[in-house]
Amino acid sequence: MFLKIGIVLVGLLSVTPIMLFVERRGSALLQNRLGPNRFGPQGLLQSVLDVLKFIFKEDRAPGHVNKFYFSLAPLVVVVPALMTFAVIPFAGNDFIIANLDVGILYCFSIASLGVYGIIMAGWASNNKYSLLGSLRSSAQMISYELTLGLSIVGLIMIFQSVKLGDMVSAQGETLFSIGGIDVPKWGIFLQPVGFILFLVSSFAETNRLPFDLPEGEAELIAGYHLEYGSMRFALFMLAEFVSMTVASALLSTLFFGGWQYLPGFSWIAHLFSDGNIAVTYLVSTLLHGISFVIKIASFMWFFVWVRWTLPRFRFDQLMNFGWKVLLPLALLNVFVTGLLIYLGVL
């Protein structure tokens, strides 16, 4: 139990310095620049310097803020973000912190708490830009949560379970095979529309570009974390990267088979299955974990890629897109999935 919590927490916390590096160098790569490449090989140690800077900077709150809520807000953002990973199996179904009956509903309910941190930050900062940022954020979060929830209803109907472990196990089966190549029963092949809807709304839920209107620096300077500095600001950043990781983990668990082997991994696992049960179990667990991490990492790169490629939406465009395009599509997806299940196709 504590070992699993330890693995997940260390993993989630170490994502931030890694992603800082990937984000900087990745943006430079996409925009044909060099990026920070001086300190350490390829600029790898730059993130360490950044963390040190955040820690040693003076932690001061401006005079006009509500001190209690101002200090509470970063915590309210970070803690739910870290808690959501508890129901995601990360290396075989034994490696899950809490195998809850409600499964993915837990993820959604805890993730919906994160918005309070942003609202608190904006309100306690006592600054009109911050307040506007947090108002935008609460409107955006509520709107896109609907699509996020509805987009996986189809998957729940197909897999007949809300437990993520059951879903991943079901995705290990073969959907069909062409010329000796088995196509696995991954969620993306069963619910392509659901995948796109979930992907788009998870961008909105994690406040990443093209949906980062709560901080939109062109209009709101920095939005809800305008008055924050040093470690408190770093906590907001941490929360953003952690919720990005959780979103990537959910995307790979729901639609890309979670800890199921990537193509080729079953061959490596076969090499080590020489009869010793302990070794076989260890190797397969390790390979499951590596597969899951690779899937998460590719989605994280996708998040970075999109951020530095697409421009920001306008707020009315965001709302129209959420309510008039994504929500009807999600409802239609649920209806069509139900019809296909009723007809016996799925």
Binding site: V102, S109, V115, Y116, S134, L135, S138
Partner: peptide
Amino acid sequence: AHFIAALQILVYTGAIMVLFVFVIML
């Protein structure tokens, strides 16, 4: 009652109270 617990957070805490705060702020 895990399901009721999850719904309590999802509906009351996550949606209705956000609207409350939203309206109060406006």
